[in-house]
């Protein structure tokens, strides 16, 4: 991790990432999918940025590049702090054979703190997400989906990150539990002041947490701006399509939207 010199926590400049797909024939060159096509993005300390896009838009590739889990083919990535990640599926992202203590404590591997101090920090992180020291001895299977996502957030939190990347953190959860986790994320930001990069297909989730939003489509950022402004007056056609697709829980409004979509 490099030292934070500039005003930005993360700065991406013209990032390109290609994936080589399986060859169609044994001797043909593998087709290339350009997942990211010249993406530039900057995140300031303490800022929450939402990345919205559909499947295949490149949003998860972007998250992996920012987290350093993947490298760009071209362009530059600068990172100025500790980055942690929360994944979508709280069933797949926690090792079922590890106790919570080890799952959370793993983020402290290489940290100079002593064992007792590390344990305290794990307990602090668990308590910050609404779990308790008693949960340290348990295995993931003992927890519900929402609680597992709290463990995943505690694992990110324990390393005192400057930036937490959350890739669809609530889309695998029930509606009533989604709200709990979103509230927790807002609450933690208030207490620890970290920045968020929230990846989602759901504009409502992003609007709830992020002051800035970038719309990604076909590997490019097609629109970026203050969330309220983008939602109120979207400029790019794809942003409008995403907004039009949201069905409100109001029969009349929802039916009108469906009728309009059928006519167009």
């Amino acid at each position: 991790m490099s030292s934070a010199d500039g005003p930005f926590l993360v700065e991406l400049d013209g990032v390109v990432r290609d994936y080589r797909l399986p060859r169609r024939w044994l001797f043909s060159p593998p087709p290339v999918l350009r997942a990211l096509d010249g993406v530039s993005l900057a995140i300031r300390p303490g800022e929450s940025v939402g990345i919205v896009g559909e499947s295949g838009s490149g949003k998860s590739t972007l998250a992996r590049i920012v987290a350093g889990l993947d490298r760009p083919e071209a362009g530059r990535v600068r990172r100025g702090g500790c980055v942690q990640m929360v994944f979508q599926d709280p069933y797949g992202s926690l090792d079922p054979r590890m106790r919570v203590e080890r799952i959370v404590g793993e983020a402290l591997f290489g940290d100079p703190d002593g064992r007792a101090r590390k344990r305290e920090r794990c307990i602090d992180a668990l308590e910050a997400v609404g779990l308790s020291a008693d949960d340290m001895r348990k295995y993931p299977h003992a927890f519900s989906g929402g609680q597992r996502q709290r463990i995943a957030i505690a694992r990110a939190l324990v390393a005192r990150p400057d930036l937490v990347i959350a890739d669809e953190p609530v889309s695998a959860l029930d509606v009533s539990v989604q709200a709990q986790v979103l509230n927790l994320m807002v609450d933690l930001r208030g207490r620890f002041g970290m920045a968020y990069m929230l990846i989602s297909h759901d504009l409502a989730v992003i609007a709830h947490l992020c002051e800035r939003v970038a719309v990604i489509h076909g590997g490019r950022i097609v629109e970026e701006g203050a969330t309220a402004a983008v939602l109120a007056s979207p400029r790019h056609q794809h942003t409008r399509a995403l907004l039009d697709a949201v069905l409100p829980p109001d029969p009349q409004a929802a039916r009108e939207k469906l009728d309009r979509a059928r006519r167009s």
């Binding site: 509606v175 009533s176 989604q178 709200a179 979103l182 509230n183 807002v186 609450d187 504009l203 409502a204 989730v205 609007a207 709830h208 947490l209 002051e211 969330t227 309220a228 939602l231 829980p249």
Partner: peptide, 11 residues
């Protein structure tokens, strides 16, 4: 529990 755009950042 549904997040709606007019309550940004509020619980």
């Amino acid at each position: 529990a549904l997040p709606t755009g007019d309550r940004i950042g509020r619980p």
